[in-house]
């Protein structure tokens, strides 16, 4: 285990119990053992914290894999259009009024699966040269904008003001009011996705040397592409299914972690997963604690507020050749 992995793991172990105690109602672990506190802890905060770990871990690892695959520090899991497609699925379920606790995430997972299938189909046609990767990325962006347009259509044709506000609110991304059932829905695809990304780790390392050199080292570009689509699709799809759109985690976390590793994509995967989990856990806690008059700050909004300036600073740094 590298030093940064150990540090992040320690930070997570420290932050997790704290996050369970923090909120509108502070829980004192030594005195307040009344039934009320236990309910808050087990039914409200524990699933929320578990979801932060699952979703954040998935997004962090997906971001690290995307940056490795596209050989670009500015790449983000959103580039493949999986998150917007999953969101489109969720929006459709809200639009149809079929958004039960189970229906919405399943619709979202179906949306993510559709995007993955489309990507795989395009990848099959684009070929495996490096121009193929560029074409493939552009195709992902087209899927993203198509899903975005269809979402706008669904919103503009929304059957009732109630559905409209529900859709808009859901799109902002949050971990509030989630249950253990959401954890059960998100965890298995995320774990599968992480396994796919870990299986791609060595190939991503080889890709550091460029497409031709990677193949000369025995990398099968088709297998790599399949693993990346499956890994990013499953982790991001599962995340959107239970938490809505939470941007910038996949972009920011690998960036923050990279300087503390040997910079190989494979050493970034696990540490970015831990970093993403930590970021979401802490950010969700802060959202919960921020004194707003009504409700709480949406996690997706908060991270975008944080992420957009970060992205800009990153671009400026890259221009100066420092990153």
């Amino acid at each position: 285990m590298s030093r940064v992995t150990a540090l992040l793991l320690a930070a997570l172990v420290l932050a997790l119990p704290l996050s369970l105690l923090a909120g509108r109602v502070w829980i004192d672990p030594f005195h307040d053992a009344a039934g009320n506190a236990l309910v808050i802890l087990v039914q409200l905060r524990a699933p929320r914290a578990a979801l932060a770990l699952v979703v954040g871990g998935g997004l962090g690892a997906a971001g690290a894999a995307m940056q490795g695959y596209l050989r670009n520090p500015l790449a983000d899991p959103g580039l493949f259009g999986i998150a917007p497609s999953a969101a489109l699925g969720a929006v459709l379920s809200l639009w149809l009024g079929a958004a039960g606790a189970l229906a919405l995430p399943l619709f979202a997972l179906a949306g993510a699966a559709a995007a993955m299938a489309l990507l795989a189909l395009i990848a099959g046609r684009a070929g495996d040269s490096h121009g193929g990767v560029a074409l493939f990325t552009l195709a992902g962006m087209m899927i993203a904008s198509l899903a975005g347009a269809l979402m706008s259509l669904a919103i503009s044709l929304s059957p009732s003001p109630f559905a409209l506000s529900e859709i808009v609110l859901w799109l902002m991304g949050a971990l509030a009011d989630r249950s253990w059932q959401d954890v059960l829905i998100a965890a298995p695809p995320t774990v599968l996705g992480l396994a796919a990304l870990l299986a791609a780790a060595r190939s991503l390392d080889a890709l550091t040397l460029g497409d031709l050199a990677a193949r000369s080292l025995g990398v099968d570009p088709r297998r790599l592409q399949f693993l990346v689509i499956a890994g990013v699709g499953l982790t991001v799809g599962a995340g959107v299914a239970v938490a809505g759109i939470i941007g910038f985690v996949g972009l920011m976390v690998p960036h923050l972690v990279r300087p503390f590793t040997d910079r190989r994509p494979s050493s970034l995967l696990v540490s970015s997963a831990l970093g993403g989990a930590l970021l979401l856990l802490v950010a969700d806690c802060l959202c919960r604690l921020l004194p707003l008059a009504e409700g709480e700050l949406r996690l997706g909004v908060a991270l975008s507020l944080l992420g957009a300036p970060f992205f800009l600073a990153l671009l400026l740094r890259l221009r100066r050749g420092l990153a």
Partner: peptide, 29 residues
């Protein structure tokens, strides 16, 4: 990959690795 080592013309390396880490990538096969 074990028998043939290939060095492409473009020396473009995606990440700012250390010399040792770069060399260790040759062990991937």
């Amino acid at each position: 990959a074990q028998a043939i080592g290939y060095l492409p013309q473009s020396g473009d390396i995606a990440w700012d690795l250390s010399v040792e880490t770069l060399v260790s990538l040759g062990r991937l096969p």
